[in-house]
Amino acid sequence: MNAIKAVSLTLCYSCVAISMVTVLIPQKRTRRVMSFAVGLFFISTFITVVSAQVSEIDFHSPNVAEIPIPTYHDADSQEVVAQMTADHLTQALNELLHNEGIDVKDIKLSLKISDEGRISVVRAVIYISEKDIDKMPAIKSIVYRNISKEPEIHVTGEEAQQVAE
Rank of each mutant, 00 (worst) to 15 (best):
A3D: 01
K5V: 10
T10F: 08
C12K: 14
Y13F: 12
S14P: 00
S14M: 06
V16C: 11
S19R: 09
V23H: 10
P26F: 00
Q27R: 12
Q27I: 15
R29S: 13
R31S: 15
S35T: 07
A37C: 09
F41M: 14
T48L: 05
T48S: 10
Q53V: 05
I57D: 05
I57F: 06
D58P: 03
D58Q: 09
P62M: 07
P62E: 09
N63Y: 05
A65H: 13
T71D: 07
Y72F: 15
H73N: 13
S77W: 14
M84V: 13
T90C: 06
E95T: 06
L96A: 12
L97F: 01
H98C: 00
I102M: 01
D103H: 03
D106Y: 08
D106C: 02
K108W: 12
K108A: 11
L111Y: 01
K112Y: 14
I113R: 06
D115P: 00
V121R: 04
V121Q: 03
V122C: 00
R123C: 10
R123I: 11
R123L: 13
A124T: 05
I126D: 02
Y127C: 03
Y127W: 02
S129D: 15
K131R: 15
K131N: 14
I133Y: 11
K135D: 00
K135T: 02
S141V: 04
I142Y: 02
I142E: 04
I142H: 01
N146V: 01
P151H: 04
E152S: 07
H154N: 13
T156K: 10
G157I: 06
E158N: 13
Q161F: 09
Q162G: 06
A164W: 09
